[in-house]
């Protein structure tokens, strides 16, 4: 564990807490893409198949349970909670993400560390996470003004993988034969997808204005 990875995990945890706060405090999920939440639930379920088979540390197990539990709880809330579900932007959240799921799974069948059930699903989860934010970014552009908590949620979600890139650089420099091409390349693609969001987020922060993404 290094400071970059810990910062990444904490930033990821903060993004989850901000989203839970937004939904719980405002009893609304307006501006949140259910499709991105469902993709993230798939990411965590596919990545943490080793949850019960391999114990790495209490921290690792607890964080996996938190990410799986929170993503499923948010999907449930947005689909079935009688108050929250009314504020879901169903007509704006129309990204056909099964194409993404199919492409990522196909890529995982071709590109993986080892051809085993667990490794193929692990690679699938890495590729899927790289593109999971797309429905959310499309929804933000369509829904125009973005409320503060939603903007902060997306910001922290994007920032966490940037910390992981620093973690991989650090580990590459300090650990012999450390190579994680699948994670690194996917992490770079994932963070790059946030580039324009980070730009407009910075502009809104500098001008102390509402976050506006160009349509």
């Amino acid at each position: 564990m290094n400071i970059f990875r810990l910062a990444g995990d904490m930033t990821h945890l903060i993004s989850v807490l901000v989203l839970l706060l937004k939904i719980y405090a405002t009893k609304s999920c307006s501006g949140i893409s259910l499709k991105t939440q469902e993709l993230y639930a798939m990411v965590f379920l596919a990545r943490y198949l080793d949850l019960f088979s391999d114990f790495i540390s209490l921290y690792n197990t607890v964080m996996k349970l938190v990410f799986i539990g929170s993503s499923l709880a948010i999907v449930w809330c947005m689909r079935y909670h009688r108050v929250v579900r009314r504020s879901y932007d169903r007509e704006l959240d129309t990204f056909r993400y099964w194409i993404l799921v199919g492409a990522c799974f196909t890529l995982a069948l071709v590109l993986h560390e080892k051809f085993s059930f667990q490794e193929v699903f692990w690679a699938f989860s890495i590729y899927l996470e790289a593109v999971a934010i797309l429905p959310q970014l499309v929804l933000l552009q369509r829904s125009g003004n973005v409320d503060n908590l939603t903007g902060q949620y997306v910001f922290f979600l994007g920032a966490y993988r940037a910390f992981y890139i620093l973690n991989w650089i650090y580990r590459y420099l300090t650990e012999p034969r450390f190579t994680r091409w699948i994670s690194c390349v996917s992490g770079l693609v994932q963070t790059a997808l946030y580039a324009d969001f980070f730009y407009y987020y910075f502009i809104s922060w500098k001008n102390n204005a509402k976050l506006q993404l160009p349509a």
């Binding site: 990875r5 995990d9 990821h12 080793d50 088979s53 391999d54 114990f55 790495i56 690792n60 964080m63 996996k64 990410f67 560390e113 080892k114 490794e119 692990w122 992981y164 973690n167 994680r180 994670s183």
Partner: peptide, 10 residues
């Protein structure tokens, strides 16, 4: 354990 080393990250 059976896992390859990269599963130590979340």
């Amino acid at each position: 354990s059976s896992i390859s080393d990269h599963h130590d990250e979340l």
